[in-house]
């Protein structure tokens, strides 16, 4: 069965794409594999693409926040892209703090944001 998430490494960037039907077991597998891959490939930034996720539950929210905090501890910046309006409203209601991460509208804007940081010779962007 296809996994409800996918990891891609583009040069210095790890791209994580999350699908709608991700369940709690998949989430913890996603966190583990993301952290391991980020370390192995020594990436500078991780982009988490949420544009296919309409509904965010508290478990997913706290785990994404946890992933961002872990990446920050490994000196890797993280960027969440493509959050939808209902998801944003839910996240605000949950009050999950995303201190260690930045946000962008979509993948393209996310890459631009990282590009801006790299241009400024800041090789480790978005550290909380």
């Amino acid at each position: 069965m296809a996994e409800p998430f996918a990891l891609f490494v583009l040069e210095d960037i790890l791209l994580i794409s999350i699908q709608e039907d991700i369940d709690d077991r998949d989430i913890s597998r996603l966190i583990d594999r993301s952290l391991v891959t980020a370390k192995e490939k020594s990436v500078v930034a991780v982009i988490i693409d949420m544009q296919n996720v309409d509904v965010v539950d508290s478990y997913l929210a706290s785990n994404i926040s946890h992933l961002a905090a872990s990446l920050s501890a490994m000196e890797i910046g993280s960027l969440i892209v493509g959050l939808k309006v209902p998801a944003v409203m839910t996240l605000l209601d949950f009050g999950v703090s995303f201190e260690h991460t930045d946000f962008a509208l979509d993948l393209e804007q996310g890459l631009k944001k990282i590009g801006r940081c790299i241009e400024k010779k800041d090789s480790r962007p978005f550290l909380g």
Binding site: D12, A45, L111, K112, E119
Partner: peptide
């Protein structure tokens, strides 16, 4: 104006 894609930079 100053923003460019990370891929461009790369």
């Amino acid at each position: 104006n100053s923003s460019r894609s990370a891929l461009d930079t790369l």
